[in-house]
């Protein structure tokens, strides 16, 4: 993906993540990336996307305590935490998808993948954003490539018709 599109994609992803966590009552504070590869922060979910416009992957990694705090269960187990971080990644990418639609790009996503054990993520080739949140961490990694020529800087025909949370009835 060219530099301009990469910057726009990054911006949209960060905005989607910030907006999502804001709705959950969590403020993300951007922090510098770690100098050296770290042990896994906590719980991780990967969401791949591929289609006629874009392909790539977006990884969300969060401190387990933060995931647990946001979980509807008062005492979730590790399986519940992995499921929930998968859904959080899904929601974050959902916000990104909506914004990309306004730029004429469709993100076709798979279902999120969560690993039983989370070895250190190989980050070569991935862009990343790192945030402090409630004594924990939220890290987002991604890679994206265009399948066709796109200009994400241009607002195209708005293909998005639904406002999050508000039911559309037919």
């Amino acid at each position: 993906m060219n530099q301009e599109n990469t910057e726009v994609f990054s911006q949209f992803l960060v905005e989607a993540g910030s907006a999502l966590f804001q709705t959950l009552g969590v403020t993300l504070v951007a922090i510098a990336p770690p100098c050296t590869p770290q042990k896994p922060v906590g719980v991780r979910a990967s969401l791949a996307f591929d289609g006629s416009d874009l392909c790539g992957v977006i990884v969300l990694e969060m401190s387990a305590a933060l995931v647990a705090r946001l979980h509807p269960d008062p005492d979730p187990g590790i399986a519940e935490l992995r499921d929930w971080v998968g859904e959080l990644n899904n929601l974050m990418v959902g916000g990104l998808k909506s914004t990309l639609l306004t730029r004429g790009a469709v993100l076709e996503c798979a279902t999120p993948l969560t690993a039983p054990e989370a070895p250190a993520l190989r980050t070569e080739g991935l862009r990343s954003f790192h945030f402090a949140a409630e004594n924990g961490r939220v890290d987002v990694f991604f890679t994206a490539a265009e399948r066709r020529s796109l200009d994400l800087t241009e607002i195209g025909e708005d293909a998005y018709c639904a406002v999050p949370g508000e039911p559309l009835f037919f």
């Binding site: 999502l20 959902g94 639904a162 949370g165 508000e166 039911p167 559309l168 009835f169 037919f170």
Partner: peptide, 14 residues
């Protein structure tokens, strides 16, 4: 389908 809700949903509207 009779309706469409984009996540995250709002409990009262759901």
């Amino acid at each position: 389908a009779k309706g469409w809700i984009v996540k995250p949903f709002k409990a009262d509207l759901l």
